[in-house]
Simulated scan of single mutants.
Amino acid sequence: MPVVPLFLNILWIVFGGLGMAVGWLIAAVVMAITIIGLPWARAAFNIAAYTLLPFGQRAVDREAVTGRGDIGTGVLGLIGNVIWLVLAGWWLAIGHLIAALALAITIVGIPFAWAHLKLAGIALWPIGKVIVPA
């Protein structure tokens, strides 16, 4: 990892990124416990890792990376995202929005606020996303 993203990721963890990553992990564990929620748990674990170290990576549609559709990028992915939104997505997005507002107050916190806003969007619709190097 280059020096600047490494430095930003360390600051990110110190200034609240760790807390949101834990929130994603809790959502993933709750989904995994239900057995039925395993597809959502997998997506939540992937996004938790991204939430822990967001700089130097980005989330993109899996179909754009692979060049073909699959179960998570089609109609079942849409249904899965709607279910996720109702069960866990909204409260994770609210957490990211609150953190973004708190960080945006300072000039130094603006890059971190922007990262939280990107993560809030992913929190609402995570199925069918894949994390790739930036």
Rank of each mutant, 00 (worst) to 15 (best):
I98Y: 03
G95R: 06
L85P: 00
A43F: 09
L92M: 06
D61R: 15
A59P: 07
T73M: 06
L87G: 03
L103M: 11
D70M: 07
A43N: 04
P54Y: 03
T73A: 10
A44L: 00
V65N: 03
A99K: 00
I94R: 15
A48F: 06
D70I: 11
L87S: 09
R42F: 08
I33S: 11
I107Y: 08
A64L: 13
M31E: 11
L103E: 11
L97P: 02
R58G: 04
A44K: 00
W91D: 06
A100P: 02
G37R: 10
D70Y: 10
L97D: 04
A88N: 04
G77F: 13
A102Y: 09
W24R: 01
V82P: 04
P54L: 05
I36K: 07
L52N: 04
L38V: 15
L97A: 12
I36P: 00
D61N: 12
G72S: 01
G56L: 03
Y50C: 06
I107A: 12
W84D: 05
R58T: 15
A104S: 13
L76M: 08
L97Y: 11
Y50I: 07
A104G: 04
I36C: 07
G95P: 02
L92F: 08
L101V: 14
D70R: 05
I71E: 08
A93P: 02
L53I: 03
R68Y: 14
G89S: 13
T34P: 04
R42H: 01
I71M: 14
M31I: 06
